[in-house]
């Protein structure tokens, strides 16, 4: 027969149960969900605008560099794979996750710099924010993605610094992972829809 004290202990034990999803990860998932809808709205608007145009790209506007950006897309995907590898290493031995995490950050930074160079080239060819609907959508969608990539890289940088000092918790790595996988996952869709 269980005593009232035992019952109370059980209640306390049940209350202290591990959360289904850590708070940081949950917050990031909610943020990513709202951002996903933002991108869905932008891509949807772009698709409708493009389909209503008689000629695409608009007259006097350059064609977007689909083939060149394919390489950049591969770099970003490789960055996602490196982060996945970092998680696996983190489970086995925390310190060994440093190298793949640094690689993920380096590849992500390369992607951002390459995107910046692409913007400079596009502006030089006459594609600006106000030159046409293509320019407006291109700089809006790719720019919003770039801002997300920049923010996520910052978070990955903080994650790396914490890992170096030995302060990194598994849930903190998971929070950064959610944002970076979102940045990596949404890019191929942008590339296929906007650049083609």
């Amino acid at each position: 027969m269980s005593s009232p004290g035992y019952g109370r202990m059980r209640v306390v034990a049940e209350q202290r149960r591990e959360p289904l999803v850590p708070s940081g990860v949950m917050g990031m998932l909610l943020f990513v969900f709202t951002e996903l809808m933002l991108f869905a709205g932008l891509i949807s608007a772009f698709t409708i605008s493009r389909s209503s145009a008689v000629v695409w790209p608009p007259p006097g506007q350059p064609r977007l560099p689909f083939e060149t950006t394919a390489f950049n897309t591969a770099i970003l995907l490789a960055s996602g794979v490196a982060l996945f590898w970092a998680r696996r290493r983190f489970r086995i031995q925390r310190a060994s996750a440093r190298r793949p995490l640094a690689l993920a950050i380096a590849l992500g930074a390369f992607f951002l710099v390459a995107q910046g160079r692409e913007w400079v080239a596009m502006i030089a060819q006459g594609l600006t924010l106000t030159s046409s609907a293509l320019g407006s959508f291109f700089y809006m969608i790719v720019g919003v993605h770039g801002l997300h990539a920049l923010g996520a890289l910052g978070l990955l940088g903080v994650t790396y610094a914490r890992l170096r000092r030995g302060w990194l918790a598994s849930s903190q790595l998971a929070t950064a992972e959610v944002l970076w996988y979102f940045v990596v996952g949404v890019w191929p869709v942008i590339w296929l829809v906007v650049y083609r």
Partner: peptide, 9 residues
């Protein structure tokens, strides 16, 4: 395009 946009959203 309208249909695809509606489906996506």
């Amino acid at each position: 395009a309208l249909l695809k946009g509606t489906a996506l959203l």
